[in-house]
């Protein structure tokens, strides 16, 4: 009786527009109660669900070019929900929802084996090495819709699932079951000052994400827009985060190619 409507929520990030300002990271941290410590400069220990990578074209001055690439969780669908991380979790603490296409992480179920972190090629999964501590008074801005995590568990971007829940609440109250595109938007999408992030249902041809990338669902959601690409397309993770760039070198940075291979293999 469910399954009547399935969504595949996804994101398109326009790297031409992205300025690398970091507002998405902060909006994410604020929405999702991500803690912070005195020194967060070691990025291998820092909790940032959304992380911005700096890409460069590897050329010397003055041909050098850089591009910022924000990386949330890709919410891989893999081969029918077999995301790299979901299938490996021994305690069923992470799951793939057919209803939304979102990869969840249940902090209270996770016991911290970190296998999923090893499985994720995007490094989108992060571990709570420390107990979260908010300086006196700062716990006041914590969002009640997302539970603060304790030490020793893995966490990651949830596409602000709490916002989906709240949007559904409102829809139910108004006698609806389906959400409008603007009713459910992630925190980073909403905050992006450049409007570089677009979020919506990839299954719904009326949603902007679908129109922007024109996903080829017969081939694992591969984008048909020539400017669109996904990171590590060849691994078969089938991520739901797409990137747009008008620059060839940026698009090529999204995946590994062997020298002399020329172009990405089409299949």
């Amino acid at each position: 009786m469910k399954g009547a409507t399935t969504h595949r929520y996804g994101m398109v990030i326009d790297l031409d527009k992205c300025t690398g300002c970091g507002a998405c990271m902060i909006a994410c941290m604020a929405e999702n109660n991500v803690p912070f410590r005195d020194d967060e400069s070691d990025k291998l220990l820092s909790l940032t669900w959304m992380r911005i990578f700096r890409l460069n074209n590897g050329k010397p001055f003055p041909e050098a070019d850089v591009c910022y690439l924000p990386r949330p969780c890709m919410h891989c669908e893999g081969d029918h929900g077999h995301s790299p991380c979901v299938s490996v979790c021994p305690a069923t603490a992470t799951d793939y929802s057919r209803e939304t296409g979102i990869v969840s992480q249940i902090y209270t179920r996770c016991f911290g084996c970190r296998y999923c972190m090893g499985a994720c090629p995007y490094k989108a999964r992060l571990f709570n090495w420390w107990d979260p501590v908010w300086p006196d008074g700062m716990e006041k801005f914590l969002n009640p819709d997302v539970s603060p995590r304790v030490r020793g568990v893995v966490e990651k971007c949830s596409f602000c699932y709490n916002r989906y829940q709240l949007a559904k609440n409102k829809a139910f109250l108004e006698g609806r079951r389906e959400l409008e595109e603007n009713e459910y938007q992630t925190s980073c999408t909403q905050a992006c000052p450049a409007g570089a992030i677009v979020f919506g249902d990839l299954n719904n041809p009326h949603h902007q994400v679908h129109q922007l990338v024109d996903p080829d669902m017969a081939h694992g959601g591969r984008p048909r827009n020539p400017n669109a690409f996904r990171i590590l397309e060849r691994l078969g993770t089938n991520p739901k985060v797409y990137y747009l760039s008008s620059r060839e070198w940026v698009r090529r940075s999204g995946d590994n190619t062997i020298e002399g291979e020329g172009k990405l293999k089409s299949h």
């Binding site: 970091g22 990271m25 902060i26 400069s41 070691d42 990025k43």
Partner: peptide
């Protein structure tokens, strides 16, 4: 603190 968190490791480290 949130802003400092966004600063890249090739801008600020330890």
């Amino acid at each position: 603190p949130f802003m400092t968190k966004t600063v890249d490791e090739n801008v600020l480290l330890h």
